[in-house]
Computed example of a mutant assay.
Amino acid sequence: MNPLSVDLNDLYFLVLVIEHRGFTAAGEVLGVSKSHLSRRITGLEANLGVRLLQRTSRRLSLTDAGQALYEHGRAMLAEAQAGEEAVRRRTSEPAGLVRASLPVAITDIVLARLLPRFMSRYPKVRLAIQASHRRVDLVEEHVDVVVRGMGQESESSSLVQAPLCTARWGLVASPVYLAQTGGIDGPGALSRDDLLIYASIDEPVTTLRLIGPGGEVATPVTQPRVQSDNIATLKEAALAGMGIASLPLYACAREIEQGTLCRVLPEWRPREGRLVVLFPTRRGMMPAVRALVDFLKEELPPLLG
Rank of each mutant, 00 (worst) to 15 (best):
G259R: 06
L265C: 08
A173P: 15
S246G: 13
P270C: 06
V221A: 06
I211C: 07
L195C: 10
G241H: 08
G243A: 04
T281F: 10
I197D: 08
D185V: 07
P224I: 00
R209K: 13
L234N: 11
P248C: 00
G259F: 08
Y177L: 07
Q180L: 05
G243V: 04
E203P: 06
P266R: 00
I244V: 10
P270H: 03
R192G: 07
G183D: 13
G212W: 09
V176S: 13
C262E: 14
T207R: 10
T233D: 15
D194H: 11
A232V: 02
T260W: 05
S246T: 15
L265R: 04
A179I: 00
D194V: 00
V276T: 08
T219Y: 03
Q180T: 04
V276C: 11
L196E: 04
G241V: 04
D193Y: 10
A218P: 13
A240C: 04
L190C: 03
L247P: 13
I211L: 11
I211D: 04
P220F: 11
P266W: 06
V217Q: 12
V277E: 14
A240Q: 15
L247R: 08
V172H: 06
P266M: 00
L178D: 09
V176T: 15
V217L: 12
V176N: 11
L239G: 07
S246I: 00
T260H: 09
I184F: 14
A218E: 15
L239A: 09
T281D: 15
P213W: 06
E267Q: 08
T206C: 02
L278I: 10
L195E: 02
L208M: 15
Q258L: 08
L196D: 03
V277S: 09
E203Y: 10
P187V: 07
I201P: 10
T181N: 02
V205R: 05
I201V: 15
P187S: 00
L195A: 03
R271K: 05
D229A: 06
E255D: 14
I211E: 12
D194M: 01
A173C: 07
L208G: 08
G212C: 00
A238N: 04
T219Q: 15
G214F: 08
L275P: 09
T222G: 02
L275H: 11
E236Y: 14
V221G: 01
K235F: 05
S191G: 11
L275F: 13
P220E: 10
D229V: 00
V264H: 07
P175G: 05
P187F: 07
G188R: 12
E257K: 14
P280H: 03
R269F: 00
V205Y: 02
R192H: 12
C262M: 14
S174R: 07
E255I: 06
D229F: 01
V205G: 07
Y177F: 13
G259S: 05
A251W: 03
I231D: 11
